[in-house]
């Protein structure tokens, strides 16, 4: 069974990975994306983040997540997919997104997981605000 959810509670990574495991599979690849404290800027300076705030256009985000899962299954030899994205305030080190992909063989699972996070960052309507000691800014991703 696939799953795709938005939550304001901390994400239990193992639970996401385990919930998608079907009998015919031999490997699950799970991405744990979490809030980073230090970001290297293009000009070589380093910026320090204190915490993050995520918000989503929730009904559309869930639809886009479902579409991504369907597209991934057409593109890769995979079975079930689980995607959970956290919303609200996240402290440094807390998990913001989990993507688990179960497949008969690991190669397809790795490829699909990489493809899914890349697409999620381009299409799923979720936005991240970075809060620094001296200000804050909404991150603007690359256009879809």
């Amino acid at each position: 069974m696939d799953l795709y959810e938005l939550t304001t509670e901390p994400i239990d990574i193992n639970a996401v990975a385990r919930r998608i495991v079907p009998a015919e599979c031999g490997a699950t690849v799970t991405l744990d994306g979490y809030a980073r404290r230090f970001t290297r800027e293009k000009d070589g300076t380093t910026r320090e983040t204190e915490y993050l705030v995520y918000e989503a256009y929730e009904p559309m985000a869930l639809k886009e997540m479902a579409k991504l899962i369907e597209a991934a299954r057409l593109k890769f030899e995979i079975s079930n997919v689980g995607i959970v994205h956290r919303l609200g305030r996240l402290e440094i080190g807390e998990t913001s997104v989990v993507i688990s992909v179960a497949a008969p063989h690991r190669k397809a699972a790795f490829a699909a997981c990489e493809w899914l996070i890349k697409e999620l960052k381009h299409t799923v309507p979720i936005w991240k605000k970075e809060v620094y000691a001296d200000g804050e800014a909404w991150a603007e991703g690359e256009s879809a």
Binding site: L120, K121, S143
Partner: peptide, 10 residues
């Protein structure tokens, strides 16, 4: 109609 900037989840 929703109006937004380039998405930045993940």
């Amino acid at each position: 109609v929703a109006i937004f900037t380039a998405v930045s989840g993940g």
